[in-house]
Structure formats: C-alpha cells, structure tokens
Design a binder for these strands. Structure first.
Lengths: 129, 129
DNA sequence: AATTAATCAGTAATGATTACTATTATTATA
DNA sequence: TATAATAATAGTAATCATTACTGATTAATT
C-alpha cells in the first residue's frame, strides 16, 4: 500500500477527534484541511484503515457506521436519546471465552460490546422538565 | 395499534426462522404466504415490532440489519467468513453494571454483545484446503 | 351500516456506501 | 533525476438499504 497524503489526513483526523465520527463527519473535518478531497476517498480509506487494524468501525442501530481511533480493548456506550457514543474500559471480556468455547464451536477473534442507555446530560435534561 | 394480518405474518415468520433474517429475507419468506405484501410493509412492521419489544434488531458491520425473534437475554456470534449469525446464552452481563456505574454516569438500558469470529463449518473448510 | 383511524400496496425519494474512469501522485529503477 | 509501472485520487454514477408518500383497503368504534 502506497503512502497517501489523504489517508494520513483521514487517519489523523479520526485519531484527534475522539467523537466517533461517521464518514460524513470525517469528510467535513478533513475538508477543512484539504477542500478537494472526495467523499469516496474518505470511505475507501476509512475501510482500508479498519482492515489494517488501525481504526475500528462501530455499527450502531438506526444510524450510519462510526469510526474509532482507539484500538485497545474497550467498549462503547451509546446514548439512545442524543446518539452520542462514549468509550468505556471494562475488564477484559476474555473471561467469556471459556463460556463461549463450552457452548459453541466458534473461534473468537473479537468482541464488540455496545451498551445502550441514556447519558448524563440527557438525564439532566429530563430532570429539568 | 390495530391488528394486521401482514404484521402477524411477519412476526410469525421471524419467530419460526431462527436464522436472523434481514428485511429482504423476511420479505422473501412472507411472500410465499402473501405474494402481494410490499417491502415497505415488511420494514415498517419489523421496526414497529422492535419498538414494541417483540423483536430485536441486530446491527452488524458491513451488512444490512437483521432481526431476531428471541428476546430473552442472549447474545450473538457473527462469522466473519460466511456472515451467519448465531445465538449464544452467556451469564448475565449485568455483572458489568457496577463497573459501568463507576467509570461513567450512564443509565444502562441494554447490552448488545456481538462476538466476531469464525464458525465451525468455515473452520472446517479452511482445514480441507 | 356508517364513521374514523390505522394499515396497506405500490412507488418515489432519501441516505449511506461502493463502483467506475480519466487523471494525478507515489514508488521503484535505470 | 528522468522514466516506467503501479497505486490512489477526484468526481461522478450506480447500487443498496431504508424511509416517505399517496390513494385504496381494512380494522375498530359508534
């Protein structure tokens, strides 16, 4: 894979914006630096970087996929009110491996735990009403 | 919500086909019973049934959403080779609640754990090559 | 049975993502 | 450092998944 200025910019943008941006948001952010970049380039490189293990793609119900620059073992909280995604570090889920091995013949390569709920500021909004 | 024959058929179809069908597959299945049903009706009712808590929507990276008639606490294995989704019952993840409460102010309403890996038959195919 | 409201089929529209193509950038090499 | 080969890009068209719209049909209510 050749170097590309655009890919580097896309990667840095996701790394420096820990907001779990979707492709469109990444596009908006990188355009500030490179107004001619195309949306297709953003999609292609986000997917490439995910395949390379440099980024993670997060699939959330009822909305577009979002991207995460953190690749260490961690998980996500999704607020079902405002849609924001938050990181959370939990003790390793590898404790589940044994259980999984016992109840199925499946070679586990990774876990995506999405915790649904309501975030602090959305709760506060409710309290005020 | 009024009764509808189409909704009943869609619901029964998901319940009786524990293959985690996506909307298109549900559409194909229900058309065998009701050739005039429309895809929009399938989508609308699948979403309605999910909102009512009668079905669950599963969001999987790089593919369309799929639907699950099992609503008891369980989780999913996704084979990254063949794309098939399998159910797995794990001990309650509510053990995580305390951890989550400690590291964030977030009101948890549910967990979606997607375990990625390779299923038994895909492993066997690899072995043969 | 008549009225009201919900749901439907069929189709158009939207949103997200991928594919295509001619051009440009990167890399390897002479 | 020029050149040839390859990879990546911008811009656009196409596809896939899903939702919205509309006039007709069906279910519930009086």
């Amino acid at each position: 894979m050749n170097y590309s200025r655009q890919r580097e910019l896309i990667y840095q943008t996701v790394m420096q914006n820990a907001i779990h941006p979707n492709a469109d948001t990444v596009y908006a952010l990188v355009r500030a630096q490179d107004p001619n970049i195309s949306l297709g380039t953003v999609y292609r490189n986000l997917n490439l970087l995910c395949e390379q293990g440099q980024l993670r793609k997060i699939s959330v119900p009822n909305t577009s996929d979002c991207f995460d620059g953190r690749c260490d073992e961690h998980h996500h909280l999704i607020c079902t009110r405002c849609g924001k995604v938050f990181d959370i570090s939990l003790g390793d889920l590898f404790v589940l491996d044994e259980q999984i091995k016992n109840s199925s013949e499946f070679t586990v390569t990774g876990y995506q735990l999405l915790i649904e709920g309501i975030c602090k500021s959305c709760i506060e909004i409710t309290d005020k009403i």
